[in-house]
């Protein structure tokens, strides 16, 4: 017993000494006032290949475009799906003098509304929503996911051989819902015969069940799959295993996951919007506007995968759909 206690205290002592040594070696760098400082709070990880990743990569793009780490300081808090935690994070960043504080989750609305009036010199941005609460230092943003969904649907409708297409969704809400609505109408617009079957797993994170859902679609004869949320990596895996099934992505570029089967992805590109917000904030306009990513403002892009052959007919139809959505001749019924 005594010997064990001795060993334990020895280990603790070693840890403490190491700690002190390292602490002594590191010195804190002072923040430069010339730097534009951005803080973002996100509900999932920056590596989710979906919602949070789309924002994080846009921020990195903005940072690079504006001159790297010397010009823009970027900090983040990820996996902040618990709202009081996010509240603490957002207030913390605002009081540390960050120039732009982003709450990247629709659940953060109440917090932003409470917080923004206390920091009139700080720009806040939050999404996905369109509500700026009438505050002149809050930006709101969202993405019209149905638009890219429609375009994906047009291509899918023309490419399906079996006439069966599978949609694997998490829960029928938010942009998962609007994307699927658009996709369905896109397919229908070019292929009235096609059978578009939907499954919803009831979870945003259950990859295994998502895989099973995709396998079920494939057994049902689907030769094209699509879906939304971070758990769709499971569907992509199932399509990959089946070999002859194609995939359409949304939220982030998903080609890298399966270079042979991803036909196209609707990519949310927040970077232009962010650039505008940053420029506004630098010139003293801290909010009051809401942004919607659309095909028209190029916040939504259809990223084709070079590795998969898309029939010319389908590409043309997709271009026509994009033009139609932009000029308003195609209306998507939500």
């Amino acid at each position: 017993m005594k010997r064990r206690a001795f060993l334990v205290s020895l280990v603790m002592l070693m840890v403490m000494v190491t700690t002190l040594a390292v602490a002594g070696a590191t010195s804190e760098a002072e923040a430069d006032s010339e730097v534009f400082r951005i803080a973002v709070v996100m509900p999932s990880a920056t590596t989710d290949t979906a919602f949070s990743q789309s924002m994080w990569s846009a921020l990195v793009t903005v940072q690079e475009a504006m001159g790297g780490e010397e010009a823009v300081e970027l900090v983040y808090s990820e996996n902040m799906f618990i709202v009081p935690d996010a509240a603490a994070a957002l207030r913390d960043y605002a009081s540390q003098g960050y120039d732009l504080v982003i709450g990247h989750g629709s659940q953060y609305g109440t917090i932003i509304e409470d917080l923004a009036p206390d920091f009139p010199e700080t720009a806040f941005a939050w999404g996905t929503d369109v509500n700026t609460f009438g505050l002149d230092n809050v930006y709101a943003y969202t993405a019209a996911a149905e638009q890219g969904g429609y375009v994906n649907g047009v291509i899918a409708g023309l490419m399906t051989q079996s006439g069966t297409i599978g949609v694997t969704g998490p829960v029928e809400v938010g942009d998962a819902r609007t994307y699927v609505t658009g996709f369905y109408q896109g397919v229908r617009s070019v292929n009235s015969e096609a059978n578009v079957a939907e499954t919803w797993t009831g979870s945003f994170s259950d990859v295994a069940l998502m895989t099973a859902a995709a396998q079920t679609h494939i057994l049902n004869g689907a030769d094209i799959l699509t879906g939304s949320s971070q758990s769709v990596v499971g569907s992509i895996g199932a399509a990959l295993e089946a070999g002859d099934v194609l995939w359409f992505g949304t939220q982030a570029e998903q080609t890298t996951l399966a270079p042979d089967i991803v036909v196209a992805s609707q990519v949310y590109d927040w970077s232009m919007m962010l650039m505008e917000i940053v420029e506004n904030a630098q010139s003293g306009v801290y909010g009051g506007e809401s942004y919607i990513l659309t095909l028209e403002n190029e916040g939504l892009k259809i990223a084709y995968n070079e590795g998969v052959d898309v029939p010319a007919e389908a590409v043309e139809a997709a271009e026509a759909a994009i033009a139609g959505i932009i000029d308003g001749s195609i209306e998507i019924d939500l």
Partner: peptide
């Protein structure tokens, strides 16, 4: 059996409570 046999990838909270 999940990460290298069914879904063949890893992601945060892969098991989702299984």
């Amino acid at each position: 059996a999940i990460s290298i046999s069914t879904v063949n990838l890893f992601q945060d909270n892969l098991t989702a409570g299984q």
